[in-house]
Amino acid sequence: MTAIRSVGVVGCGLMGAGIAEVCARAGKDVVVVESSPAAADAGRQRLEASLKRAESRGKIEAAAPVLARIQVVEQLETLADRELVIEAIVEDEVAKTELFRRLDGILTDPEAILASNTSSIPIMKLGVVTSRPEHVLGIHFFNPVPVLALVELVPSLLTSPAVTERARAFVQDDLGKQAIDCQDRAGFVVNALLIPFILSAIRMLESGFATAEDIDRGLVLGAAHPQGPLALADLIGLDTTKAVAESLYEEFKEPLYAAPPLLARMVDAGLLGRKSGRGFYTYS
């Protein structure tokens, strides 16, 4: 099994930057693609700030050598020579399928793996728009990527078992993460369990049953959760939470997956959680 040396990441938001960072920290040559000069600059600053924090806390010896292994560019064609490309763009099926079509025509290595960091969209829908569905799978990291150890591996019905095992070796042996295997169903393992829990907390708040603070305090102090479900939704992003809920509802048609009206209105208002400065809580 050939080790993966070169990695491409599409998107340098919270998830894309985290994926790029852990790959570079593992010694990989990383190219990150963003959609505009402003987004690329923001991505570089996000990477630099995160690696400097890691250096100051003794997590890495020095930030500079890791940063030197990462290029942030704006041209998707720069990924042509990559052995693995991980998509980490907005959680939107139309945008992701169009990106996979483009990447399929750009990658020159017939053995290159095309992976998605989607948290909810079935991998089959992404694989079938390419000419290499056997080389397409989900590699789903969790936020914050440098901290959380879990990765969900999600092959579709058409993914080659050899490709899945190559991805597993990359995730576990190279990145030092722990992989779990998931069926290609919306939400995979973690979000299929987590999102209904968060939606239930939002409905409880919406109904006036309890305050946000008391709901979260109850789960932290009464169930030993590290943070409450509403604070967690703010961390995930309310837009992402809503998008995952919609994917789950589309797949299973179960009422527990339907986004509550309060969540929809908050997303419409741009109250997205930590990334916008306000969600169920206000952040400075």
Rank of each mutant, 00 (worst) to 15 (best):
A162K: 07
E111Y: 06
Q172S: 06
L107K: 01
V129R: 06
L126V: 04
P155K: 08
P144K: 06
E134Y: 01
I113D: 08
L107T: 02
R168N: 12
V151H: 03
K125N: 09
F141V: 11
M124T: 15
I180R: 14
T159D: 03
L158K: 15
N117H: 07
G127F: 00
L114M: 10
I139L: 14
R102Y: 03
A149W: 08
L153H: 06
A167I: 05
I113M: 13
P155T: 11
R101S: 04
P133H: 04
E111N: 14
P110I: 00
R102I: 02
T159E: 03
F100L: 01
S120R: 01
S131G: 13
A115D: 02
A162W: 02
L153R: 04
I139T: 14
Q183E: 15
F142K: 08
D181P: 00
Q172K: 05
L103T: 02
V171T: 13
P146A: 07
L158E: 15
P155D: 10
P146V: 10
L148Q: 11
E152K: 14
V128K: 13
N117S: 10
D181F: 13
A115P: 01
I139E: 07
H135P: 03
E165G: 12
P133E: 06
H135L: 09
I180H: 11
F141C: 07
I121F: 09
M124R: 14
S160G: 11
P161Q: 09
S160T: 13
